[in-house]
Design a protein around this nucleic acid. Structure first.
Length: 419
DNA sequence: TCTGGGGTCCTAGGACCC
DNA sequence: TCTGGGGTCCTAGGACCC
C-alpha cells in the first residue's frame, strides 16, 4: 500500500509549535520580502477573503482587523522541522519518499487495511506528540489514490480522526465520485478546463474514459494518472538523488537599474547555486540567466540567455565569471529590474568528470572551493565570499515579522520559565 | 515603496547520423 | 505522376507539483 503524510498548514503550524498561546488563533506566513501570503492556518481560512497569494501590503488593514498573527517566512525553522517529521515517519514504514517540505509518500508491504490504519494513526500521533505538528495521513493502493484519501481527511478531520484508508473497491469509487477533477493530483488549471469542456467534473469520470483517448489527449502522463486512480499503481517513486537543475532567484525589494548593482546580485545568486551544486557533489556544464522588470508594471522586459562553459565545473569563480560576462552581454540600460535568477544546467556527478582536450576547469579551483566550503561550514554561512559579492552585506530581505530560529541557532533556543 | 521560490517530466521539432 | 527509411540527441516550451 501507498500512503502520504501531509502536514496541515505546515509553515503556520511550525510557528505555532513554539508559540502555544497562538493555539486556535489565525496565522499567516508571508513569502520572501514579506510579499504575499503563502500559508494560512485554518482559523485564517475561515475568513474567505484572505486568499493564498494575497498581497501583504494590500491586506495589512484586514490582518489587523481580524487579529491575524503575521510571520515572515523562516526557512531554517521549517527545513529543520521537516527533517524531524521525515525521521519520525521513517520508523514506521517500509520505504519513505519525501515529496516536498511538508509531505512524504511511504510504502507498506504485506499489511492489511486495518494494520495500515493503525500505522497511520501511530505516525499521526507521534508527530503531534514529539513536534506539536498536526498532520493528515491518506493510505490507498496507489499514490494518486492516497492523495485523494488525504484530501478526505483534510475535509473531514474529526470524522476520519486524521487518517483515512481507501481499501475496498466501493470506497475507491465513492471517493472518486466525490473528488472534483481539479482537485486531482496531476490535473492542473489547464487540464481541468479541458476536461470540464468534455463534461468531466469528477475524478470518477476521468477513469471511465478509454485508455486510447486519454493517451492521445493527455499523453502518457495522463494515462499513468488514470491507471493510478483505477488502483493499479503506475506512478513510480521519484528517483531520489541529485537535482537536475539548481536555481537561485530573487525579487529585489526595490527595482534596480544600475548594472553594477545587478552584477553584485547575480554574482551572489551564481555563487549560491555553485554552493548547492558542490553540496550534492556535482558539476554543471552551463547556466541559464534571466533578468526581468516588474511584471505588474507597464513596460515589461525579460532578458535571458544560456551559457555553455564547454566543460563541467563546480567552481564558484568560473560559474560566476561566465554568468557575469553573459549578463553584461544581454543587459539593456534604461529599465528598472525587479527580479533575477541563475539556473545551473547539465548537471553531472563530479566523480565522473570528463576531461577535455582543449578546455577544462583549472584544477586549483577544486581545492580552493573545498577549503571555502569547509570554512563557511565551520564559521557560518557567507563568512567567506568572492570579492564580486556584497562584502558588507548591505542586501537585506524584508522580514519584519521573523520568528527566532528555535531549533537551529543556539542563541535562539526556546526559554522555559519555571516558577 | 510594496506582488515568492524551487523543482520535475514530457513532447514537438530541428539538426544531425548512416 | 514525381524525391528512402530508420534512427539519435538536444532544446524550448508547456504542463504539472509543493
Amino acid at each position: 500500500m501507498y500512503g502520504i503524510v501531509d502536514c496541515n498548514s505546515f509553515y503556520a503550524s511550525c510557528e505555532r509549535a513554539f508559540r502555544p498561546e497562538l493555539k486556535g488563533k489565525p496565522i499567516v506566513v508571508l513569502s520572501n520580502n514579506d510579499g504575499c501570503v503563502i500559508a494560512r492556518s485554518n482559523e485564517t481560512k475561515v475568513f474567505d477573503d484572505i486568499p493564498m497569494g494575497a498581497v501583504a501590503f494590500q491586506y495589512k488593514q484586514k490582518f489587523k482587523a481580524y487579529g491575524i498573527h503575521v510571520f515572515s517566512s523562516n526557512y531554517s525553522l521549517y527545513g529543520d522541522m521537516s527533517s524531524r517529521v521525515m525521521t519520525i515517519i521513517e520508523q514506521y514504514v517500509d520505504a519513505l519518499e519525501p515529496y516536498s517540505i511538508d509531505e512524504a509518500f511511504f510504502r507498506l508491504h504485506g499489511k492489511t487495511e486495518e494494520e495500515a490504519m493503525l500505522i497511520g494513526k501511530k505516525i499521526q500521533k507521534e508527530i503531534l506528540r514529539q513536534l506539536g505538528l498536526p498532520v493528515s495521513v491518506g493510505i490507498a493502493k496507489s499514490k494518486a489514490l492516497s492523495k485523494i484519501a488525504n484530501n478526505i481527511v483534510k475535509k473531514f478531520p474529526e470524522k476520519t480522526n486524521h487518517v483515512y484508508v481507501i481499501g475496498t473497491e466501493e470506497q475507491r469509487v465513492k471517493a472518486l465520485q466525490w473528488t472534483n477533477i481539479s482537485d486531482v493530483w496531476g490535473i492542473g488549471r489547464r487540464l481541468s478546463k479541458q476536461l470540464e469542456v468534455m463534461s468531466i467534473d469528477k475524478a470518477y469520470g476521468y477513469t471511465l474514459l478509454s485508455d486510447e483517448l486519454v493517451r492521445n489527449r493527455f499523453s502518457v502522463v495522463g494515462l499513468r494518472l488514470k491507471h493510478d486512480l483505477e488502483g493499479k499503481p503506475t506512478i513510480a517513486a521519484e528517483k531520489e538523488g541529485d537535482k537536475l537543475t539548481i536555481m537561485t532567484t530573487r525579487s529585489f525589494p526595490k527595482a534596480l537599474s544600475d548594472l553594477k548593482e545587478i552584477e553584485e546580485r547575480v554574482a551572489t545568486f551564481a555563487n549560491s547555486c555553485a554552493e548547492k551544486l558542490r553540496k550534492q557533489k556535482s558539476e554543471c556544464g552551463g547556466a541559464y540567466l534571466f533578468l526581468r522588470s516588474n511584471s505588474y508594471g507597464k513596460e515589461y522586459v525579460k532578458l535571458s540567455a544560456m551559457v555553455h562553459f564547454g566543460f563541467e565545473t563546480s567552481s564558484s569563480i568560473t560559474i560566476t565569471k561566465e554568468v557575469l560576462l553573459k549578463l553584461r552581454d544581454i543587459f539593456k540600460e534604461g529599465y528598472a529590474y525587479k527580479k533575477a535568477g541563475v539556473v545551473l544546467i547539465s548537471i553531472k556527478p563530479a566523480n565522473m568528470h570528463q576531461t577535455r582536450l582543449f578546455a577544462d576547469e583549472n584544477p586549483k579551483h577544486r581545492l580552493l572551493m573545498h577549503t571555502m566550503d569547509e570554512m563557511n561550514e565551520k564559521l557560518g554561512k557567507g563568512k567567506l565570499k568572492l570579492a564580486n559579492q556584497d562584502i558588507k552585506q548591505t542586501w537585506k530581505m524584508r522580514q519584519e515579522h521573523l520568528s527566532p530560529q528555535y531549533t537551529t541557532n543556539i542563541n535562539d533556543i526556546i526559554k522555559v520559565n519555571c516558577r
